[in-house]
Design a protein around this nucleic acid. Structure first.
Length: 253
DNA sequence: AAGAATGTCAACCGCAGTCGT
DNA sequence: GACGACTGCGGTTGACATTCT
């Protein structure tokens, strides 16, 4: 007996989202915020399950999403983080504001993995494949554990690093929560009222079609302003701490 | 030009964790 | 502690796009 599905799937729409659905979801969230995903589709008038709405918002509609291909620097950072964190995509994604875990996971599976293979690196351990085989051979032939003292020392260091990592991730999560809890709808209306006298409601078509409403660059500017305003409201002390902790982690490595 | 092969990425599924009762 | 409701995560799928033969 498995768990019941998150929603009654009968009569619910599946597959790609239409512009109209996107529009409905965005308008609803901008005006009401997110309190309970399960209620969102009902209240927004969508024939989707809450889970689907959440995914659509997080991966595609959020105003702070960064569009476009990942840079080489970002790619390198993903590789480093993957070596440290493994397939914990959401943790990796938290290091890239505006990028989603899905995006990074897809990028990893379709491109980086391939690149690693071409370079002769193991995609799990990031070691050169030959070296990895040697290590595995060594473990098989000599499974003796280290001395008790050595084991304790290693465990202690690992725990310390884990605590720092957790703390850092908590800070990043808090930042995301704070961004998410701000009333974007209010901000948006204020922003659009100040900048022009056109329709106050956000229209996805407007942002997709330059001929209607404001130009995409103006919309991007507005979104950037929002992101900047969120940033300016935050204390950066926590991020200074992050920097210190990162240095500690580098030393630990 | 056409079909096959391959790549990309949005969306789905099921599980685990958390929280309230 | 047991249970159900809900959210978030990671693995996987499948539709569409692009490249190759």
């Amino acid at each position: 007996m498995g768990r019941q599905p998150c929603c009654d799937k009968v009569g619910l729409k599946r597959g790609p989202w239409t512009i109209e659905e996107d529009h409905k979801l965005m308008n609803f969230i901008f005006n009401n915020g997110i309190h309970c995903w399960r209620m969102v589709p009902k209240l927004a008038g969508l024939l989707r399950c809450g889970k689907s709405c959440r995914l659509r918002w997080i991966n595609y509609l959020r105003p702070d999403l960064k569009r476009g291909a990942l840079s080489e620097a970002e790619e390198d950072q993903i590789i480093q983080l993957h070596a440290r964190l493994g397939n914990r995509w959401s943790k990796i994604a938290s290091h890239f504001p505006g990028r989603t875990d899905n995006e990074i996971k897809n990028h990893w599976n379709t491109r980086i993995k391939k690149r690693q293979k071409i370079l002769g690196l193991d995609t799990v351990t990031h070691m050169p494949v030959e070296e990895k085989e040697k290590v595995e051979e060594k473990i098989e032939t000599n499974p003796e554990p280290n001395s008790l003292k050595e084991q304790e020392e290693t465990r202690g260091k690992e725990n310390e690093a884990k605590m720092v990592l957790d703390g850092r991730n908590d800070l990043l999560n808090d930042y995301e929560v704070l961004c998410g809890s701000l009333d974007v709808g209010l901000w948006w209306n204020q922003e659009t009222t100040n900048s022009n006298s056109q329709s106050l409601s956000l229209s996805l078509e407007d942002s997709l079609n330059p001929s209607m409403g404001e130009s995409p660059s103006m919309k991007e500017d507005s979104i950037q302003k929002w992101v900047d305003s969120v940033d300016s409201m935050l204390s950066w002390d926590g991020f200074n701490q992050l920097e210190e902790e990162l240095i500690f982690l580098e030393n630990f490595q």
